[in-house]
Nucleic acid binder design. Structure first.
Length: 304
DNA sequence: AACAGTTGCAACCGCACGCTG
DNA sequence: TCAGCGTGCGGTTGCAACTGT
């Protein structure tokens, strides 16, 4: 690896480049004794000639005691691939579901290893009639697990809900994401603890009136399935669970958006005009592939 | 052994967002 | 309302280590 660089930024005494063992010791000792505070204070008080940002990065990506070092296990790898198919390049969201792994680590792993593998795989698959059987897929290239998303991806995402499989797709997403541990926020487990049963091509509830539903901005909501398999999405204000679980802004509740648009869809028929005023990018969700894919996870048990 | 090409990953950069005064 | 600051995120860069010729 690179040797620590003694470089000093022009007009500044702040060091850049690799961290020396001494700097690591200083930061580690300070963090263990004082805990996390204002990062610029950390840099100053720990006697480091680094900017706070650099200290934060070093701590989060390297020094944190709970970090898992070493290669990714096949299970982690598979989980990353599937989370990426659901979340895209939201590395922090993916990292939040992988204990001891950082977003930077996962991002590097993806860009260096998985991306390459996917590329090789897709090039070999083009000549194979069973290309879709691969457990590895990338939404961008292979058309799987795509979502409606806002252009500003910080604002969130929703699964694409077409008119015929609106509730099914939302249900599948709920099942998938709810069963992945969300380490950062701890909001992933549905309060009611219930999941849908899978009975053939449709989904029914298992005696539970709602299920946790994740949004990318950390909001936990719920979905109900109506008597005809239609999706009934309460607004955040109607649903105390949303309010309890939310630790971020819910002003632009997607449940409200879905409700509104679902109603609009019923009135107009078709989904072409949905989300129009949200500047959304519309994709499709290959449900069959997704179901086939997620079934390979032992912890994604759809039968309960 | 020497060199060139490739890989893996630590760290930087720029941007966006939230908070505060 | 706005500017300043701190923080977090995703994209990118740079280089040591590795591999192939």
């Amino acid at each position: 690896m690179r040797k620590p660089e003694p470089s000093v930024k022009n007009n500044s005494k702040l060091r850049k480049g690799l961290w020396s063992p001494e700097e690591d010791d200083k930061l580690m000792n300070y963090m263990l004794n004082n805990g996390q505070g204002c990062w610029s204070d950390v840099a100053r008080n720990a006697g480091l000639q680094r900017c706070g940002k650099s200290c934060r990065l070093r701590w989060i990506n390297y020094l944190r005691p709970d970090l898992k070092r070493g290669a990714f296990s096949p299970q982690e790898e598979e989980l990353i691939i599937h989370l990426h198919s659901l979340l895209g390049n939201r590395w922090s969201q993916i990292a939040a579901r992988l204990p001891g792994r950082t977003d930077n680590e996962i991002k590097n792993f993806w860009n260096s290893t998985i991306k390459k593998r996917l590329k090789n795989l897709s090039s070999t698959n083009t000549s194979s009639p069973n290309a879709s059987e691969s457990s590895i897929s990338e939404p961008k290239d292979l058309n799987m697990g795509r979502f409606i998303s806002t252009h500003d991806h910080q604002k969130g995402f929703m699964p694409v809900l077409n008119s015929s499989s609106l509730s099914m797709q939302a249900t599948v997403l709920t099942n998938i994401i709810d069963r992945l541990p969300l380490l950062e926020h701890g909001l992933n487990m549905p309060a009611a603890g219930g999941f849908f049963n899978v009975t053939g091509p449709c989904f029914t509830e298992s005696g539970v009136d709602n299920n946790g539903f994740y949004l990318e901005n950390g909001v936990l909501g719920s979905v109900n399935i109506g008597p005809e398999g239609d999706l009934l999405v309460p607004s955040a204000t109607d649903n105390p669970k949303v309010e309890i679980a939310s630790n971020r802004d819910t002003n632009n509740s997607y449940f409200d958006i879905i409700n509104k648009n679902h109603r609009a869809e019923n009135n107009r028929g078709g989904v072409e005009n949905l989300f129009q005023d949200q500047e959304l990018t519309v994709g499709e969700w290959d449900l069959e592939d997704l179901m086939k894919d997620v079934s390979s996870f032992p912890f994604l048990d759809f039968s309960s």
